[in-house]
């Protein structure tokens, strides 16, 4: 079922299961989006890598991906290295295209059928100096689907001294269950214009210090029951005594959908610390996705 012609930067993934194994009835994408699916030992778990040519996106790039998961199939969407968002391609002068469409946009729309599951476990987004990025992700689930959505961002290229110096990052995650919106997570990070008045400007870096990586993890469904249960127990067991300086990592958990789902937020001074924390928090996925897929996501 090859699509006749799809727009630039558009992609589509449709995964079925014929009773024996997962089958992609569609997997197509156009520049600058690239999709790859490796062969895996388990027939009912599939992986799609979402990649971009040159390993990054530039101002004006617009990526749109539609995903459907059917028949009880399990799909993990991963990336290879962080999604880098440039203001313009390195070594390239600001083009006319950038002037017209300065914002880089990634849009993901996912439908997960009953008993099926989606695991969105990409590497973090890294916005370079002066970049503008919008990410809009919508997830339509049925009440017995399962999903994990990881959305995270780093402060920039620390090696070049960049700490929260992009111009704008907007991330929106919407979760619908049986046609009812249950969560709308909207995060806006932007450098504020200095306003008239006596206040000195407060930078994004000051507001987000001392952390250089922030993650949001939304989970829902049967397959996450153990994970949610373990995390909730770990969270409620925490007792915070008065501290003299912020800890290297902080996390929070709030239940949604009467405890059938949850929203976890993590912040840490080091991105790798967030990665290992999440890997550990989602350890039960080894059983759900298989060790191989788990390692691909968190290695």
């Amino acid at each position: 079922m090859a699509p006749s012609k799809i727009e630039q930067g558009h992609g589509r993934v449709v995964l079925h299961n014929d009773g024996y194994a997962n089958v992609f009835s569609d997997m197509s994408a156009t520049y600058p989006l690239k999709l790859l699916s490796p062969q895996l030992p388990s027939p009912n778990v599939s992986v799609v890598y979402m990649l971009s040519y040159g390993g990054g996106l530039v101002g004006g790039d617009r990526v749109v991906l539609d995903v459907e998961v059917h028949d009880g199939a399990r799909l993990a969407i991963l990336s290879q290295g962080s999604t880098k968002v440039f203001k313009a391609r390195p070594g390239q002068r600001l083009s006319a295209r950038w002037q017209l469409h300065p914002v880089t946009t990634q849009r993901l729309a996912v439908r997960v059928a009953p008993r099926s599951a989606l695991f969105l476990l990409p590497d973090p987004v890294t916005c370079f100096r002066a970049a503008k990025y919008h990410q809009i992700q919508t997830f339509h689930l049925s009440k017995d689907s399962s999903a994990v959505l990881l959305d995270w961002i780093t402060s920039g290229r620390k090696s070049l001294g960049e700490e929260w110096v992009f111009s704008k990052y907007l991330s929106l995650n919407e979760v619908w269950i049986e046609g009812k919106r249950v969560a709308k997570d909207s995060l806006l990070l932007e450098e504020r214009d200095s306003l008239p008045g006596p206040l000195t400007p407060r930078t994004l870096a000051e507001s987000l210090a001392p952390y250089s990586c922030y993650a949001t993890l939304i989970m829902y469904g049967m397959l996450l029951e153990d994970t949610i249960c373990h995390l909730t127990a770990a969270y409620t067991a925490i007792t915070v005594f008065k501290q003299h300086a912020p800890p290297p990592l902080l996390w929070s958990l709030s239940p949604i959908c009467e405890g059938r789902g949850c929203v976890v937020r993590v912040a840490a001074k080091e991105t790798e610390h967030v990665r290992s924390w999440i890997g550990n928090a989602l350890k039960d996925l080894e059983g759900v996705l298989g060790v191989d897929v788990y390692r691909r996501a968190f290695a």
Partner: peptide, 17 residues
């Protein structure tokens, strides 16, 4: 939109004090 994710985490940890 929320603009301060750090505040979100800290506020959610209130009951852990």
């Amino acid at each position: 939109a929320m603009t301060w994710p750090l505040g979100e985490i800290l506020a959610a940890r209130h009951d852990l004090q």
